[in-house]
Design a protein around this nucleic acid. Structure first.
Lengths: 151, 151
DNA sequence: TGCCGTTTATCAGAGCTCTGATATGTTATT
DNA sequence: AATAACATATCAGAGCTCTGATAAACGGCA
């Protein structure tokens, strides 16, 4: 029944299917991030949401969902867990009675500051020894296939 | 409180963080695949497992977990759902009393054949109009950051 | 032979993600 | 003013993914 190939060999390497490579790369990165964020009790999606809130404060869960390209239900779960951890607070919107504006707490700011250093160091590692043209090609491609029209 | 950027603009585009771009690209691809596989009732992880079993038949759930870079528990869930759908079967290993060898059923083969055409067409779309050097750079990078040493 | 470490499989609990459905509040149309 | 359309939030159910713990079967070594 044949032996199994090692990571990076044959179909598990550069000859593999792009979807497979893409999934594994994203997965490996997430694992590395959450390993380094373990003692902060922060997941990668949670880190993303905190980062978004720091850049665009006062927005709603629905806004964040659009920003992260996830459904409102998904964002609702992440927001609930951040609330439970005391890293964000929700206040009723002044004008719109249904909207809940979200902002970072002091604890949220502090945790985000800690986490950013670690995550950004990891990102620099990913690009180490990469030619500028290669970096540009990768960024362009990732951006392109994220667009709905790339279908 | 400022407006939100559109997909592909500012931090949501080529200037964004790599981890963010990587996550969104993998996510967008998965969504597109599962949309096209919807009538087969197949998810992307399930498709991956069927493909692996076609290439390396007779292996165990633990083998598949190593192949897909996921934990045995995760693979156990996927295998259970494929069993429930009748796309795979498990038989006790001849020599080793604990191992369960897994193989595709006829239904599994047929479903995989259907799915492959759609998924591969999607992959070709992702690479359309891409220079060979850019393709190579992307494949190399994805392979590299999947390796544990890329940390 | 008997114990120890490894491998396989599985149970429990948690977070992220989806689709589908429902309730409520806002805005536009008639 | 009443209705329709839209946005926000939430509940329910499902699949994927993890960590941690447990049990069973195999292999090697004292």
């Amino acid at each position: 029944m044949g032996d199994l190939p090692a990571v990076g060999e044959g179909k598990r390497g550069e000859d593999g299917h792009l979807g497979y490579l893409l999934r594994q790369a994203a997965h490996a990165h997430r694992q590395r991030v959450e390993q380094r964020l373990g003692d902060l009790g922060l997941t990668l999606p949670q880190f993303s949401v905190l980062t978004m809130l720091a850049a665009y404060p006062g927005h709603s869960s629905a806004d964040l969902a659009r920003l992260a390209l996830v459904t409102p239900q998904t964002m609702s779960v992440i927001v609930a867990n951040l609330l439970k951890a005391g890293l964000i607070v929700r206040t009723p919107h002044r004008v719109h009675g249904r909207i809940q504006s979200i902002a970072l707490t002091d604890a949220g700011e502090a945790t985000l500051g800690d986490a950013k250093q670690r995550v950004y160091a990891l990102e620099a590692e990913m690009l180490r020894d990469l030619a500028p043209e290669a970096q540009a090609a990768i960024r362009q491609w990732l951006t392109r296939i994220t667009q709905p029209e790339a279908a």
